[in-house]
């Protein structure tokens, strides 16, 4: 479903701030794979998702989504295939627009936007049903402006928007990191429900190792712009947090996992 063929990306090339963010990264996902991604700060996790999403173009390598070469496709065109939820709850929704308007925008992802009505009465009823899966009571607040919602509500709504048009690939960039633990758990539950329901191929970045182990069928660890550990199936189920920490130390040559990973 997804093929990253030795992609590389260097930021600020030729300056003192030169940063090799992706270093010949290879990753291949089967349809229905739910991969969790862990790694220290600066390992290239978010950079990988941005490369897939097309925030900028990679320096070398190729990106295929379901066999379609998207390497040189602009961000908004790639959006046809992708559902995205960002780390910052403010990023995924339009604050000055209503809940139903946000959903209507998302429902038209990949379609040409014409002079037809921006939202129809019929789809409004559909949204009411869809919002119920989040279990946040948003189904009764269709015309509320998104700016009035809490961070958790906005993340949950973004998740729904990302999956309203079934994407070929769902990209979750630490989408619970900015939420308090209780809310984060709720959003993660909703994630599992939706991913399970639609059998979505998913990549989820997380700093929480327990979450990384508990969710999905595959786990990859990144370090210095490439994948250093890749585990799936039964082997993944048996993983413990201390296994992961040990792996991380081995791979990074004794360099210890950062505080943020430890605390989780």
């Amino acid at each position: 479903m997804l093929d990253l063929n030795s992609i590389s990306k260097t930021f600020n090339a030729g300056t003192v701030n030169e940063k090799r963010a992706l270093n010949g990264l290879d990753l291949h996902l089967q349809e229905g794979d739910f991969v969790t991604v862990i790694g220290g700060n600066g390992a290239g996790k978010s950079t990988m998702l941005n490369a897939i999403a097309g925030t900028w173009f990679v320096d070398s390598g190729s990106i295929l989504i379901d066999g379609i070469d998207v390497t040189r496709l602009s961000e908004h065109k790639r959006a046809t295939y992708l559902g995205r939820v960002f780390q910052d709850p403010m990023t995924g929704t339009a604050a000055s627009m209503q809940i139903e308007e946000n959903l209507a925008l998302a429902a038209r992802r990949g379609q040409t936007r014409t002079l037809k009505k921006g939202i129809t009465v019929k789809e409004r009823e559909g949204y009411r049903e869809q919002l119920k899966i989040l279990e946040l009571g948003l189904e009764d607040r269709l015309t509320t402006h998104v700016g009035l919602l809490s961070g958790g509500q906005r993340q949950a709504l973004t998740l729904l928007m990302a999956t309203l048009q079934k994407p070929k690939l769902l990209l979750l960039d630490e989408h619970t990191a900015a939420l308090d633990p209780k809310t984060a758990a709720k959003v993660l539950e909703a994630t599992d429900r939706i991913v399970g329901r639609d059998h979505l191929t998913t990549i989820m970045i997380t700093h929480n190792m327990k979450d990384a182990i508990a969710h999905g069928n595959r786990l990859v660890m990144m370090h210095e712009g490439r994948i250093i550990y890749d585990v799936s199936g039964e082997e993944k189920k048996k993983l413990t947090v201390s296994d992961l920490l040990r792996k991380f130390e081995e791979a990074s040559g004794g360099e210890f996992a950062n505080d943020r990973m430890m605390l989780n």
Partner: peptide, 13 residues
């Protein structure tokens, strides 16, 4: 006008 990142993620040019 409200959110460019979100717009592009939703396929808006």
């Amino acid at each position: 006008g409200s959110n460019q990142n979100m717009s592009r993620a939703q396929g808006i040019n």
